[in-house]
């Protein structure tokens, strides 16, 4: 049975990257507990429209937690209070009647606000461009077990490959560091045989691109808690180790790979 919630919302409104923003206070009445957080915003926007107020801009796409488009700071937590959940998969039943909910965009200097709650995360694209790929021709889907990869390694790689690039790690980080994102994107390639040829070049290029945009990691662990895919801090340790190896080893020897 769906109950109805009476909520007080404080929503960040900002006209564009250069303009100053401010909070809009909205009384959201009769919000069904079955609604997702984004559906709640849809309802609020419909009502704002009826009142002749411009609806709140927020980014969203698949609404099933796999695309990484949505992302809001909800009461100071990226993607809200539920662990391992993207904003779109957060449901209003996690909130209590009468709650005040503060909704802000993901903040970082490299993530300028496009409008209201939508931010520009193209700095992540620069990191991927720098090395988040393999150059080996992959052809069609290979037969199973054609390349022997231990189960543990495949699992570890998949744990990193879950990253949807939503930016919650940067948003949650008190340093605005993108270590978890970069570590995940490096990790899922660097531990597999297919990722070996570019391993050191990739690590160097992606980390150095990251450092042009983002802050410096101080191992708070906030990113892991915010991550909708719960990516482990172990990948950050792997990034640190691979980076120093990339900087110190003789890369002309295949035996050093």
């Amino acid at each position: 049975m769906s109950r109805m919630l009476q909520l007080k919302l404080r929503i960040w409104r900002q006209g564009g990257p250069a303009s100053r923003g401010s909070f809009l206070d909205v009384d959201a009445h009769d919000i069904p507990t079955d609604a997702s957080f984004l559906e709640m915003l849809d309802i609020v926007n419909e009502r704002l429209l009826e009142d002749g107020i411009e609806p709140v801009v927020f980014a969203h796409d698949c609404r099933e937690g796999i695309c990484g488009t949505c992302g809001l700071m909800i009461n100071g937590r990226a993607h809200g209070p539920e662990l391992g959940t993207a904003t779109c998969q957060l449901h209003m039943r996690k909130f209590k009647d009468g709650d005040e909910i503060v909704i802000e965009p993901f903040r970082a200097a490299a993530f300028p606000v496009v409008r209201d709650l939508m931010v520009d995360r193209r700095a992540f694209d620069r990191i991927i461009e720098a090395g988040g790929y393999i150059s080996a021709p992959t052809g069609t889907a290979p037969d199973a077990n054609e390349i022997l990869i231990p189960k543990d390694v495949a699992d570890f790689s998949m744990d990193a490959a879950q990253c949807i690039g939503c930016g919650a790690c940067v948003a949650a980080c008190p340093n605005s560091a993108a270590q978890l994102f970069t570590a995940a994107k490096l990790g899922h390639l660097n531990v597999l045989p297919q990722g070996q040829p570019e391993r050191w070049r990739r690590t160097e290029a992606m980390v150095e691109t990251m450092e042009q945009y983002f802050g410096s990691c101080t191992n708070h662990g906030e990113c892991h808690t915010a991550c909708p895919k719960e990516i482990s801090l172990d990948f950050i340790a792997l990034l640190n180790r691979d980076y120093i190896k990339a900087k110190t080893k003789n890369r002309r020897l295949a035996s050093q790979a």
């Binding site: 960040w12 937590r77 802000e104 008190p174 450092e211």
Partner: peptide, 28 residues
């Protein structure tokens, strides 16, 4: 470097903060 990366994002006394009172979950 972190301060510059958090410019206009509420960086104060060594950390980025949001307007909401609830903040920091894992950070000790």
């Amino acid at each position: 470097m972190s301060r510059k990366s958090s410019e206009n994002a509420g960086f104060m006394s060594g950390a980025k903060r949001y307007a909401s009172k609830q903040d920091f979950v894992a950070a000790s």
